[in-house]
Simulated scan of single mutants.
Amino acid sequence: MRGCLRGERVKLTVLFADGAAPESASFWLVGHAARGARRVAVFRHQRPADVLNREAAEARAEARQCQEEKARLLAERTVPGGLMGAAWLERTGAVQSEGILDDVKPQAGNALETTGARSYSPPGSVAVRLKLLNPGSEPWSAAGAVLKDSTGAEVELSAWQEAAIPPGALGFVVVGADTPEEQFGCSCILKLWEAQGSRTITLGNVTFSKVKQAPTSE
């Protein structure tokens, strides 16, 4: 490639005029001190558009599955389960909790139906466990969540679940964060979202029990 410095990289994009798929191709040309070419010929094998669309959909599905698997492995590494998890929450004293399903106010257009809700307030932190029904045609997995208090202040929450909630099935999601307990002494708004796509869940009037002083004898 003449006219370029040695090792210089130039990205080129070729547009094909016949209208077949793929419609374009991009590649890099790298400068060389002794070799150069005045012309570069580009050939491509034509492929039906439906084949390319199917491969793109498969790639997106594989990427989504990898993200969900990564989230599950990270959760298993950082969060104890079963009795171990309960014992861990009890490490600083009795855990205050309350069922809030009858009080929460789901937003119209929520992607999933809330069939169970319970809030937890160990000293110095808050958490909410939701039981959700997925009425959609695709699995749903929480990628993140945020809790907003009555003043508009927001706290980002970590989200954990064993697996994505399959279509037409029930599943549990737990969200929580370490935060000053007095910040959420009033009703809050909780919002969860998925990794890819626009399906969200928003719940109003989320409350937490007042935290009692943790015992120091244990």
Rank of each mutant, 00 (worst) to 15 (best):
M1G: 09
M1T: 10
C4M: 13
R6K: 07
V10C: 08
T13N: 11
T13H: 06
A17L: 09
A17P: 04
D18M: 11
G19P: 14
S24M: 02
S24W: 00
S26E: 15
H32Q: 14
A34N: 13
V40Q: 10
R44H: 10
R44V: 05
A49M: 10
R54F: 09
R54K: 08
A57F: 01
A61L: 11
A61R: 11
E62V: 06
A63N: 09
A63Y: 10
C66Q: 12
E68L: 03
E69T: 11
R72K: 05
R72G: 00
A75Y: 00
R77E: 15
T78L: 10
V79I: 13
V79L: 08
P80V: 01
M84S: 12
G85Y: 13
G85I: 07
T92R: 08
G93Q: 05
S97L: 08
E98M: 13
L101D: 02
L101Y: 00
D102Q: 14
D103F: 01
K105Y: 08
Q107T: 13
E113I: 06
R118E: 08
S119Y: 05
P122N: 03
P123K: 04
G124R: 03
K131E: 05
L133H: 15
N134A: 03
K148V: 12
K148N: 01
V155E: 07
E156S: 12
E156I: 04
L157Q: 02
S158V: 09
S158N: 05
A164C: 07
I165V: 11
P166D: 06
G176L: 08
D178F: 14
E182C: 03
Q183E: 05
C188V: 06
L192E: 09
Q196N: 10
I201W: 05
I201H: 04
V211K: 02
